[in-house]
Design a protein around this nucleic acid. Sequence first.
DNA 1: CGGCAATATAGAAGTTGACTTATATAAGTG
DNA 2: CACTTATATAAGTCAACTTCTATATTGCCG
Lengths: 148, 148
Amino acid sequence: MQAFEVLGDPVRRRVLELIADGEVTSGGVCAVIRAEFGISQPAVSQHLRVLRDSGFATVRAAGTRRLYAVNPEPLREVAEWLDPFRRFWAPHLDALATELARSRRERRLQESTGPAGTPARESTGPAGTPAREGTGTPTRGVRHDRGH
Amino acid sequence: MQAFEVLGDPVRRRVLELIADGEVTSGGVCAVIRAEFGISQPAVSQHLRVLRDSGFATVRAAGTRRLYAVNPEPLREVAEWLDPFRRFWAPHLDALATELARSRRERRLQESTGPAGTPARESTGPAGTPAREGTGTPTRGVRHDRGH
DNA sequence: CGGCAATATAGAAGTTGACTTATATAAGTG
DNA sequence: CACTTATATAAGTCAACTTCTATATTGCCG
């Protein structure tokens, strides 16, 4: 299941919120979700499975308990897809963030190698085309990999 | 249809990318999507409808054409839900962003009202619980508003 | 070991959502 | 005005997702 689809479910989003501050047992998650959404334990377990399989969560066994934690990678990809649109609501901050990134990069470079000329940048600035790959366009040309 | 669900569909994400740089006609969008996903014109039209209805896109009539453009608001909400998780992959930048946000907010306050004590903030800082409302928990206690 | 507690899996059922084809609406064009 | 172009809507089909109940698995404990 694809990242955005995984987040399409409110229960799964809530689960991610619940495990965001650190490991939580399946039972812990289950208790809250059952209270808030009124669904059964197996239902919660399935959602946890989806989160596992899609890489949003990691599990660790502790006796008979399962400790779930967030795996940020897929969330990062989602956030990255969103990034080019940020200029719509935060045009200033976007420029500032770019500036921050630039200065940090330069600092890093100064620490390691000697200062060099601006190396082919990836045009981080605003007003750029938001077109992305990865989370974006799915296997162009191939059809019917979609929910039919 | 909820924001995250809307973005769950790859076609709709692609459409948003296509109209991100400015108005595009239905036909323009359609041509690209048909080429990339191999679906029919009505199918594309339906996706455009979903984007309209969910507030992700706006339309403007121009003769027989319909010009679509991005409406950033829902995207912003999605990005906001994601924000608390940013600390996972960008712990430094997050602190800086918070700082930037704070100073901008204070500047705004100074311009409008007189400077007042910190008004009940929503704990923007990192390490805070990512629990949110709005895009987050949906109508707690109410059940079976979910895809069954 | 027997039994309980914590989770996960299996199979069945209902609903939703994304297509498709056919058709309606409305604006240009000769 | 007839015709074509540009989009949207309607109705029907089909697969997938979510949930439930029932059951399996695995570790803990007396």
